[in-house]
Design a protein around this nucleic acid. Structure first.
Length: 491
RNA sequence: CGGGAGGUAGUUCAGCCCGGUAGAAUACCUGGUUUGGGACCAGGGGGUCGCAGGUUCGAAUCCUGUCCUCCCGACCA
């Protein structure tokens, strides 16, 4: 059992690392804080990316690409923005290497210093709004609904595979609008797209909400988010959508003529999700045997394992499997036939459980003579013999059922871990012993939020959008409050 | 960026304290027997001991520096 993974109970962090590494999603690299996304992990990301891309296009967006490098001066145009990112920017200062005169390989050529240093983008608002200035003159040029798929760099001190790496892949949507209303509608629309994607495709239930001033994106007027809950009771911000007001339009002087020929600043949004979603996906569903991937985005949906004693049996199984594979592929199901003969069936079973393949089919001589296959589902580990007649349709329905079951299980867990508390003692006790979201009254001040964070490490994850107004008193200060907010320990 | 731990075969690790030409298990290759939950027998290949200096007749082992990883903390998505 060289592949054994650490149990969640024993060490949750190590369990997570084991799943990523041994499940074949990613590896560490020679570069601090940067990871290698391996083919299996990248296939997962491609499935997520492709679906999100379809959803962006369905909502009227188009893709474009902006430079990796941003002139240093751009970043400082918007005061809050630079404040938010300054501490984690990688800076390009030179453009040439030369041979070390002392024979130590290559060194930076001091003659080749850049006139203006370039920042490796931590996000692209500045370069994009500098560009939009040239694209926008009148209300007829609006809205601009652009997305880009890109990598960004944030020089993190402490990194975790997928959850927080120095370089990561994401998409960033950047839209420009004639009115504040339209921009707010766009912000909310994309939040809905993210929520729908998380729940229907990743099977991760999320809470839609708005961030407090403390947690807001640097440069935004309002930051909306989807928050997910991991199995260790910690929350994970899975996506954000920002109403940027006119902050960037003013910083980059982007104005348009309205219908009355008056010059107005443009209204903006930006929104993004990243490879961090993969970390959330892993922690939301998986178990001590390995990954559990939702069928809709799993790189492989079905693996077929033959069981045979000799070439004759193998040949008979091959023939039957070829037929089944064709039927599955006709339904658009992603299937792999693992007929390696150097590992035995039991090894393969364990391997594909580790990799989270939703459905496994085993076919041996006994099955052939009985016209059945053994079907095992990853989410519940149930095994049963199923007739081969119409097997592809059976599998198709089973994949749907697994997708739903994974989501329902995660939703039950999430719902059981939203605790309403009314006193400070209950609040602390719940955070310590139960975890999850804690719904409590807060007096609305940044100072109180900060003090709660210092005392408990819990932050306000969001003010849920579907909040009911409710009179109450702040759990810390006892001051009046009009609604509950969700606190949690977070990634 | 601070505190702690670690880096030796593809992988997991022993060897280091007390310096003397590098080991186990597993994986891999060959042959055979096997195959319904991580097979067995026999033979075989594989490591500049993270990297760079230093001490020494001699360094995986001692010293210095450096890189990467994990855990905890501060910071952040």
């Amino acid at each position: 059992m060289a592949e054994a993974i650490t149990s969640r109970e024993q060490d949750y962090s190590q369990w997570y690392n084991d799943l990523i590494l041994k499940g074949g999603l990613a590896d560490y690299s020679a570069v601090r804080g940067c990871m290698v996304i391996k083919p299996y992990g990248f296939a997962l990301w491609e499935n997520m990316r492709d679906q999100l891309d379809r959803m962006f296009k369905e909502t009227g967006h188009v893709n474009a690409y902006f430079p990796l490098f941003i002139p240093k001066s751009f970043l400082s145009r918007e005061a809050a923005h630079v404040e938010g990112f300054a501490k984690e920017c990688a800076v390009v200062t030179h453009y040439r290497l030369k041979n070390d005169p002392n024979g130590g390989g290559v060194v930076v050529d001091p003659e080749a210093k850049l006139e203006e240093e370039l920042i490796v983008r931590p996000t692209s608002e500045t370069i994009i709004w500098n560009t939009y200035k040239d694209w926008i003159q009148s209300y007829r040029d609006l809205p601009i609904l652009v997305n880009q798929w890109a990598n960004v760099v944030r020089w993190e001190m402490r990194t975790r595979l997928f959850l927080r790496t120095a370089e990561f892949l994401w998409q960033e949507g950047h839209t420009a609008h004639a009115t504040a209303d339209e921009a707010v509608i766009e912000t909310r629309k994309m939040l809905d797209v993210y929520a729908q994607f998380a729940e229907e495709w990743m099977a991760v239930p999320v809470i839609k909400g708005v961030k407090t001033a403390n947690e807001r994106f640097a440069g935004a007027v309002d930051t909306y988010c989807i928050e997910a809950l991991m199995q260790d009771g910690k929350a994970l911000q899975a996506g954000t959508s920002h109403f940027l007001g006119q902050n960037f339009a003013k910083a980059f002087d982007v104005k348009f003529s309205d219908k009355e020929n008056k010059l107005e600043y443009v209204w903006a949004t930006s929104w993004g999700v990243s490879t961090r979603l993969i970390g959330g996906l892993v922690m939301a569903h998986s178990d001590d045997q390995g990954l559990i991937l939702p069928p809709k985005i799993a790189p492989l949906q079905v693996v077929i394992v033959p069981i045979f004693k000799n070439d004759v049996e193998k040949g008979m199984i091959d023939n039957k499997v070829a037929e089944i594979i064709q039927n599955l592929k006709d339904l658009g199901i992603r299937v792999k036939y693992d007929d390696q003969d150097n590992v035995r069936p039991g090894w393969k079973f364990a391997e594909y459980e580790l990799k989270g393949v939703p459905v496994r089919m085993a076919i041996g001589p006994r099955d052939l003579s009985n016209n059945v296959v053994e079907i095992a589902r990853r989410d519940t580990k149930q095994k049963q013999s199923v007739t081969m007649d119409g097997i592809a349709f059976y599998v198709q329905a089973l994949l749907d059922e697994i997708q739903l079951n994974i989501f329902e299980k995660a939703r039950r867990y999430r719902d059981e871990h939203i605790t309403r508390v009314n006193t400070w003692d209950e609040f602390v006790e719940t955070l310590q012993n139960k975890g999850g979201f804690v719904s409590a009254h807060w007096d609305g001040t940044a100072e109180t939020e900060e003090e709660i964070k210092t005392k408990t490490k819990a932050t306000i994850r969001c003010i849920p959008l579907d909040n009911e107004p409710e009179e109450g008193t702040c759990i810390l200060t006892g001051k009046p409050s009009t609604q509950r907010v969700l606190f949690a320990l977070a990634y």
